[in-house]
Design a binder for these strands. Structure first.
Lengths: 154, 154
DNA sequence: GAAATTTCAATTGTACACAATTTAATTTTG
DNA sequence: CAAAATTAAATTGTGTACAATTGAAATTTC
């Protein structure tokens, strides 16, 4: 009798209880919220993040960009080719080390910086979070990622 | 003179200051941390989330699964075909409504539930977060996603 | 109750992610 | 300094995501 009764699964295995799912869903939600804003700039979300890095520091190599964004060349190479196609960046082998490819903003890529400033402002307004709450949440997420990049204990 | 000086960009545009990037990076970090655990089960991360839903409630339609996971048929149909290929689920049109496709766990899919229980336990240990902190972070992320799904004010 | 609308899943096409391999260039070592 | 090892980017292949369209089935509406 008991063996046939349907029991509620332990809360540790319920989707809604999972931090991992909340994180996965929230991340896609945020990306989706950026999409209409970025569409007017002609950028996808990972392309926008890449441009953020370049607006901060131009002339990085693919590897340096990958370090900042935590993405490898398998992701970045095609993404950067599309940004080049769109006329926003140039890709050029370094003469000092021919293995490296330097990514530089074009005038057009540089010009996109101004209209892009509206994006974080618009998103901040939509999130309805105080600046402090946003910082705290951001730091908790950074801490979480840092924890996972630690080599496994035991 | 001043016009040529390189200034530090306003903090609102620095990658490291962005909540959106922290969320994007943390989400990929967590997925990466799950990968080796799920590999032994023969599942990818989205496949694992799908199985979590089915272990909780079997016999859902593609749409119902999509509601729970916030994924559309464009993502789920190929994912479910792979789970079927792996022998973990069956896909069958409902006689009551031929538009709907019912997803059911096979015996093999059901059997995976037990070894899968170790996964959240193992991850919880790696995160080094108290149960309370995990719940709080999870709820903040849910709140954030909910906020973004609101229609834009103003 | 037939036409218009809606719903559901599948399909098509684009763009990430990421593991694994390849190729070329540089650095290290014996 | 030549062979071995390392490094950087690109390539290949698999698996999501998601917009847009398609096709079939069910529902609504006139």
């Amino acid at each position: 009798m008991m063996a046939l009764m349907k029991r509620t699964p332990p809360s540790s295995v319920l989707l809604d209880q999972q931090l991992c799912f909340a994180l996965y869903a929230a991340s896609r939600s945020v990306t989706a919220a950026y999409r209409p804003l970025l569409e007017s700039l002609g950028l996808t979300y990972p392309q926008y993040l890449t441009m953020l890095v370049l607006w901060e520091q131009d002339g990085l190599t693919v590897r340096e960009l990958g370090d900042r964004l935590q993405l490898d060349s398998g992701t970045l190479t095609p993404l950067l080719k599309r940004l080049q196609q769109a006329g926003l960046v140039s890709r050029q082998r370094r003469r000092s080390d021919e293995r490296e490819v330097e990514i530089r903003l074009t005038a057009e890529g540089e010009a996109l910086r101004e209209p892009a400033k509206a994006v974080p402002e618009c998103m901040a307004a939509r999130l309805c979070l105080s600046s402090e709450d946003m910082q705290r949440l951001r730091d908790e997420l950074k801490q979480l990622a840092a924890q996972l990049s630690q080599p496994t204990q035991v």
